[in-house]
Nucleic acid binder design. Sequence first.
RNA 1: GCGCGAUUAGCUCAGUUGGUAGAGCAACUCAUUUACACUGAGAAGGUCGGGGGUUCAAGUCCCUCAUCGCGCACCA
Length: 729
Amino acid sequence: MIEPNIDPKLLKPYDPKETEDRIYKLWEDSGYFNPDVCLEKGIINSDAEAFTLIMPPTNANGSLHAGHGLVMTIEDLIVRYKRMRGFKTLWLPGLDHAGFETQVVYERKLEKEGRTRFDIERNQLYQEILDFTLLNSSNIKGQVRKMGASCDWSREKFTLDDSIVKTVYQTFKKLYDDDLVYRGNRIVSWCSKHQTSFSDLEIKDEERIEPYYYLKYGPFTISTSRPETKFGDKYVVMHPKDERYAEYIDGQKIDLEWINGPITATIIKDENIDMEFGTGVMTITPWHDNVDFEIAERRGLEKEQIIDENGKLLPIAGEFAGQHIKKARGLIIEKLQNKGLVEKVEENYKHVVRTCYKCGTILEPQIKNQWFIKMKPLAEKALEVINQNRIEYIPDHYKKITVHWLENIMDWNISRQIVWGIPIPAKICNDCGHGMVDLDNTILKCKKCNGSVRVDQDTFDTWFSSGQWPFATLGYPDSNDFKTFYPTDIMETAGEIIFFWVSRMIMLGLYITGEIPFKKVYLHGLVLDAKGQKMSKSKGNVIDPLTLTEKYGTDAFRIGMIVGNTPGTSLSLSEDKIRAYKNYANKLWNITRFILSSTENVIYNENFNKYIEKENVLISERSEFISSITKEMDDYKFYIVGEKIYHYTWSRFADVIIEESKEIFLNGTPEEKESRAQFLIDTLSKILKILHPFMPFVTEELWSIIPVDNKKLLMVEKWPKAEKPEVLS
RNA sequence: GCGCGAUUAGCUCAGUUGGUAGAGCAACUCAUUUACACUGAGAAGGUCGGGGGUUCAAGUCCCUCAUCGCGCACCA
């Protein structure tokens, strides 16, 4: 029998739909997401230590997926915890224009409309994608709110904001002045579908089984899986120590019959040849191969382009000119066979080809005159701080992975031939190709040869701007925010982008600010479906976080994402699990209902000190519990705390303590009743506080109902302390 | 080829510095005007991938093998 005058909401099961938006508005209206407001309103002390987390800027090209759901959950949990611990807590939200990613999404949209980006004038295309992005942005921001994110919207940044672009430009200029960025002819990976180059990270290696050809090249046999690149090969290379070819000398010319007639080839002896591989002899194609390029560069050999940017053969291919390499290969082999130049064909040669990670097109190495950052000097500084353990990796094996990558780092191609992005502020000489950074648009002649110049039409690799995110968003160098909140405390993001993003932030942060950008890196794994499969639209197993929050409530979704999810490990998301936590939210609801109905005429007193022995035992147990989970929270072991608090509430508090209270309330002495009532409310209020970072909505709602004096919003209440200080030690 | 992980209950995963294996979900047996069926009580389920070593003691440390996953390189 329920007492008539308890909050009528409690008489029905917990209804997330009725609650969540209302609670979020309460929080947002309070202004407490903003640490300055917390300070102004006396929520935190004036000398409170800062705690800063910069949100990985969300790609503004779609809607929130399960991975975002995880990011928002973990980060909001961290931030709410720190806020309750009295830190001057800033969680700065942001959006990423996500250059190439967004352009690909938009191109697919265009394709459906029967258009292509190559038919659209640059400025118009830019405007269209901008509109598309802005539309998505507001959508995404709504979804981030739905997840309960307590980020400071007043400080929100977008990668294309003027202030960010300005910082990015200054960084580029500084790199240029320090001779750390150069424009040069280098091999890049070129996607003929997307018509842009990539850095070495945006590449997907794919195993292929293809024929492998052994071709007669004068007195030699060379082997290749790509005969279509061989038209211009006029250097034949072998190892200087290779006995088999001892009779040939470096620089020697030989005449031989090749695909389109007789040619003169030059013998090159080079240490970089693997004698064990194939016949130990190869011809080189410097324009379309990394290794060949390196040899040609070092030996000063001529380079010639064979394949154009669309994957078609150039005039050097003679009768094959203009044909696409895909079609040409067979025809070329046919011709070689007719000429008796094919020695043998290995039909099932297994090798790995580099493909575009978005469209699967085989990437063609091409020599391009583009901007590259010299990474070695930047990487060395990063390695130094990492080896000094000045950045903590959670889990720590990511440190090893990072060190390995940094030790073998390659120069970073930051030029992208796409419209959607931050334009590279540079002029290029029409005569000598020299590149000059020109922030004020004042360079009119080449500084090297006095030739005429043109504006660089390329945009920056999107990771170049996001790599500067921690200091760029905080208004480096003179803003108060930068002084207060940098270096940030933690970078929480997907393990997947450890190189793309995290490592580059460390390098650029150190380079520009001289300080590490964050003290800790917390890396979460992928979110997989219940069967442990990667979610993808084509498999049809994508789980939309908003469908789950709609069905089970955001709190259930959030704690379901946390429990059992260790950092760095991928998480299988099952609906059963989320449903279980929906029941938990309702359990809390009913616990509150029971406590309020059975203690209705008790006035809760936070400083109640007449507990009888029975309660003192429970308090000491609770105290131990609080101190252990507080330590685990500080160690970022949320997966354990989530499980423990669940277990404490349900199996201990509800099933045992509340059950035995029924007897006390029925037959106990007034002292026993009073003692127990105080304990129940006190414990409930502590549970709500501990649970708040995990399940912010239901806990805030219950907090508003329970009889505690001088209540603030739960989100700014203090995290409970263990009553017995000695337990803490 | 080099590197990094993983292998524990049917499934998903915990297991902190070595001290006789834990949780959720699922399945099983009971209970049923109970704060809560979005429930309660109970039971079941594991030679911790194989082998070897260190130790009084190993899921945990060392070596080795196997399988799976990922990254990097090579890919003439």
